[in-house]
Design a protein around this nucleic acid. Structure first.
Length: 459
DNA sequence: CAATACACCG
């Protein structure tokens, strides 16, 4: 266009910046920024907003802050919202919340974009208390019946462990879109209510919007969490055959997981294992650096007792040199959020925590607890295995909560899946201390009460 | 120009 002698104007730049930010092309964004200055349109609010969105998606919040402060009275709602969502996408939640708080204090009206973004932040860190405050603000702003805010609320309540509130709200919504239905179906899946998820899916097919690929992620994961293999396959087939939706990577993941969890590959299900292996191959091709795919395949074989295949999957993973995230757990107390990592010695009350853990361990052993070391995939001797298992982050978190007095359910959040041993231990702990424990792992919610877990030991 | 839903997770 420029070679042909045309000059770009603000509309050109708005569109270019939108394209660049959707691709997260940071370097290109900077070049466009330079051009914007050259063409003397850097003081245009829409252009500045597009730059904020672009830098935010590229992880350049420092640059956003510079632009934002330069904008002074040119800022509009979009500028504020872009900053908030930029902070949230870059995991700067405190800064995002500070900005929201600042907006409220200066009497600025929050719109449905702000609420949706802030609720997704509450959902992602699972802070129910804050989520409910945001809900109350949305109510005051008369945005509670907005479908975008409503869907975000359903998701927030489900991810914060209150599937009951999620359903109550879902049922009250005057208008529901595909996001609302998907949030509720995935919520049921996350809480292990496979039957309810499938029933809601049937209802959606009757009088809801047409299901999309996300709906099927929810449906398939619901089947996986509840161990419903055959019906899961039926839905997987209907996805392409009835709804014309081509299966994506995430659907193949669900299928591999479904087979693994149900232990189908050890049984007379050779064809399905074959499908699982093919699905895994496709995943490796699509994202060879994602550790999760290797773990999935290994789990599928492990559940069927195919140990040589497990070893082979793990070897593949080593060869691909993939890395995994470190595990941590956190709890919200009156004095704030406390984070723990395995074997952590950094907490200010660590002495009390370890003392409590020691006391718990003794009581657990007296009650018949034996460390489930055979499920730990470390190549270590028995003693070391027990040592490592005994100090997983969720144990530190539960011990920490128990050093403080209260009768409320103990709510613990963890970024990875709970291991067999910790799951076993938590059942004992719930009985010994007579407290309900709600553990949200990366996968789902576990409700421990009086020596039992709501997942029925299947997760 | 900003927004909500998504499986897997030593």
């Amino acid at each position: 266009m420029m070679r042909a002698g045309w000059n770009p104007n603000r509309v050109t730049f708005i569109n270019i910046l939108a394209a660049v930010s959707s691709l997260s092309l940071c370097k290109v964004g900077q070049q466009i920024h330079a051009q914007v200055i050259k063409y003397h349109i850097a003081g245009d609010t829409t252009i500045e907003n597009a730059l904020l969105a672009c830098y935010g998606k590229c992880g350049e919040m420092d640059e956003c802050e510079k632009i934002f402060s330069r904008m002074s009275d040119r800022k509009d709602d979009v500028s504020w919202n872009s900053m908030i969502s930029g902070y949230i996408h870059n995991e700067l939640l405190l800064k995002a919340m500070d900005l929201v708080w600042f907006m409220i204090q200066r009497g600025q009206r929050l719109d449905h974009f702000t609420f949706a973004t802030v609720l997704s932040a509450c959902a992602s860190v699972a802070t129910l208390e804050r989520g409910m405050e945001v809900h109350a603000s949305a109510l005051r702003a008369c945005l509670e019946s907005d479908v975008v805010v409503g869907s975000a609320l359903v998701d927030m309540y489900s991810k914060c462990g209150r599937i009951d509130y999620a359903l109550r709200f879902f049922d009250m919504m005057p208008i529901r879109n595909v996001y609302s239905w998907n949030s509720m179906i995935s919520g049921y899946a996350r809480h292990g209510h496979g039957d309810k998820a499938l029933r809601l899916f049937s209802r959606m097919k009757l009088d809801g919007p047409p299901p999309d690929h996300v709906t099927f992620v929810g449906v398939l994961s619901a089947c996986s969490h509840a161990g419903i293999v055959d019906e899961g396959f039926k839905h997987f087939k209907s996805m392409s055959q009835v709804y014309g939706l081509a299966p994506r990577m995430e659907h193949f993941s669900c299928i591999v997981d479904l087979l693994g969890r149900a232990g189908a590959c050890g049984r007379a299900n050779g064809r399905k294992t074959e499908l699982g292996r093919k699905a895994a191959d496709m995943l490796f091709e699509m994202e060879p650096q994602n550790a999760v795919n290797y773990v999935l395949l290994a789990n599928m074989y492990a559940s069927g007792g195919k140990w040589e295949d497990v070893a082979r999957a793990r070897k593949l993973m080593r060869e691909a040199e993939v890395k995994k995230e470190a595990g941590c757990s956190w709890v919200t107390m009156k004095d704030g959020v406390h984070v723990f990592v395995a074997g952590d010695k950094s907490h200010p009350e660590k002495d009390l925590v370890y003392e409590k853990l020691k006391e718990l361990n003794q009581k657990m052993r007296d009650a018949g607890y034996v460390p489930q070391t055979k499920y730990a995939l470390y190549d270590l001797d028995q003693e070391n295995k027990e040592e490592l298992l005994g100090y997983h982050s969720e144990r530190l978190a539960v011990a920490f909560v128990l050093t403080r007095n209260s009768g409320l359910p103990i709510r613990i959040m963890k970024n990875l899946r709970v291991c067999v041993d910790c799951h076993f231990a938590f059942k004992f702990i719930s009985k010994i201390v007579g407290r309900q424990i709600v553990l949200r792992d990366s996968n789902r919610f576990h409700h421990f009460d009086d020596g039992k877990c709501s997942c029925g030991d299947y997760w």
